[in-house]
Design a protein around this nucleic acid. Structure first.
Lengths: 336, 336
DNA sequence: CTGTTAGCGCTTTCAT
DNA sequence: ATGAAAGCGCTAACAG
């Protein structure tokens, strides 16, 4: 920066100000000088060092984000929504994935916090006590998403996975289905999947239907192949099953494909429903009944909330914990 | 850190050393003291501030990564491979997406470089002159991936998209197909897609087949819906078409589904091939012929190469530019 | 509007 | 093995 300043014939501070966000729209001569500074930066190949700026001001300009995996369009869309909501603010996302392993969250959160993010977004409402303690000690706004935790750490932007899958069960019931199975994981590593299963079981009970056959296809992430295997198991186990609710659309698509390979008519003989409104479920034949979650909307809402919370925190008084309940929508389509 | 030091009764330096990576395996009394430091950190809720450490040492501990979009499992797997290769080193990924917009690359690279990453991975070999200049001025190792650029900036880990799609065309020819179409984007925003189309066209010419009907379905990212539309257009345009090569598996899956909706038998009447070996192509019925790219392997190779290059750069003499050509594999399956 | 000064919290270096 | 001191490059605060 000193080099650039010398090159233009001004002080470092003038360069710093010219490069600061919102440095446009000044008096004409100042604007001209600013352009000279920018030109000099380009000529000298100088890019401002935010590493130093962040350290000096105590404001890192980072928002930390924890998601289970990148390889799931529900979560990547949430990240896209977060990016969209925050990019104008100059804050950058610092992304980390747990790959659905509970033991990874704590070191990941520690690694993220070591970069002194100004806020953090979690895709979960389930954490170890140490993780909670770390997050609380960090004294930054926290947003938990994709669930509605009973005891939120701070803010929440989520929905009830159980209520959503219950809605699917009621839809299946309304379509005349009576023997309804659940295919998915039953692992605490995926609390959202667990919630969906519980919602299914409760709804069946409430409707006076027999308890679901639950097919546990293993650990998350649940693949299409696991969905196919799950369907194969289900057909062994119960010949009279007439509907299967799957933990996610990829799982449901795998199950559907297995039916196609076996010549089982969907939805005539067997109805299949998924969860999450993934692209594959909109494109396949028959199209999958599912629950549409506004993934990008969760990201945007979390981002906007976090920006407000960060601004409040900078102003000295933290934003009182907010709880944003996002809508979900049953998408009744051809597979049921 | 001073608080922790006081709490344990040692100096800041002792705390710093206890918290440094590779601080394990010391003499017993030291190890004990180290444990006391760690306990104090937990008790006080202290997490080390890498913001200051990075600034002080001039080593940010970041690797910057630029990908077109998160919402594509090919790229997210590459990121997973990168993570796997680099996580033991203590370097963290700083991820940015261009969303396939050429104008976004330059500000994104600038934003990433402002965090002083120690290396950068790009998912592209096509850049504006200013972007190239910035990258060169940053004097850090650069790895371009997913292509084989003619004039690499530094290192390359990629493969020939054209050669890969040519292999698919030869496969279709060997299966007796003669009128072969290409469905995909023809936008410079997706140089890999363009390369695939060119490879297809050249292979047809080399085989003495008629030029491909090229269906341009618009800007990337190419969705399943666009693939379906593309197939609809293709069937309007040329009733005698007997094969369609799609720019990616999602596009091919959309095309396949459109055929299913129209009662067009795949592969009997029309063969369909995709690209990228996405999960959907392995799971659908019929399974899609495609080109398997080792996405995670590209990420791992890029990560390992970058670690070597960073180590060399720290040692003072940069690693001479490497070019790693990754294999691809034709996966002949049911759709052809 | 521009310039000067001080200081952010670590780690490197050097001394003990 | 531990401690003391210096310094990384920027920006907040204040002065001109």
């Amino acid at each position: 920066m000193a080099d650039v300043a010398r090159h233009v014939g001004v002080s470092k501070m003038t360069v710093s100000r010219a490069l600061a966000p919102g440095a446009a729209a000044r008096r004409a001569d100042t604007a001209l000088r600013r352009q000279r500074v920018l030109d000099a930066c380009e000529e000298l190949g100088y890019v401002i060092d935010r590493t130093a700026g962040a350290f000096g001001t105590g404001r890192s300009g980072f928002i930390a984000v924890v998601i289970p995996t990148l390889n799931n369009s529900n979560f990547s869309e949430t990240v896209q929504g977060l990016t969209a909501a925050t990019e104008a603010s100059g804050l950058q996302l610092l992304l980390g994935t747990t790959e659905y392993r509970a033991t990874r969250e704590e070191p990941l959160v520690r690694a993220l916090l070591s970069r002194r993010p100004e806020g953090i977004v979690l895709t979960s409402g389930t954490h170890t006590p140490r993780t909670r303690a770390m997050l609380q000690a960090a004294r930054i706004p926290v947003v938990e998403t994709w669930e509605l935790p009973r005891a939120p750490i701070d803010h929440v932007v989520g929905f009830s996975n159980a209520a959503a899958s219950a809605a699917v069960v009621r839809h299946l019931h309304a379509q005349g289905r009576r023997r309804i199975a659940f295919i998915g994981g039953t692992s605490p590593l995926d609390p959202r999947g667990m919630d969906r299963r519980r919602g299914c079981e409760r709804a069946l009970k409430a409707l006076g239907l027999p308890a679901a056959v639950v097919i546990d296809v293993g650990e998350p992430p649940i693949s299409m192949a696991q969905g196919a295997l799950g369907m194969a198991q289900l057909l062994e186990l119960d010949k009279d099953i007439d509907a299967a609710l799957c933990v996610s659309d990829p799982c449901a698509f795998g199950a559907l494909s297995e039916c196609q390979r076996r010549g089982i008519a969907v939805p005539q003989r067997l109805a299949i429903a998924g969860f999450g409104d993934f692209e594959v479920g909109r494109g396949c034949v028959p199209r999958l009944t599912t629950v549409a979650v506004d993934c990008a909307g969760i990201g945007r809402a979390a981002g906007e909330l976090l920006l407000r919370a960060i601004a409040s925190a900078r102003g000295g008084r933290p934003l009182t914990p907010q709880k944003v309940v996002m809508p979900f929508q049953l998408m009744a389509r051809d597979s049921t």
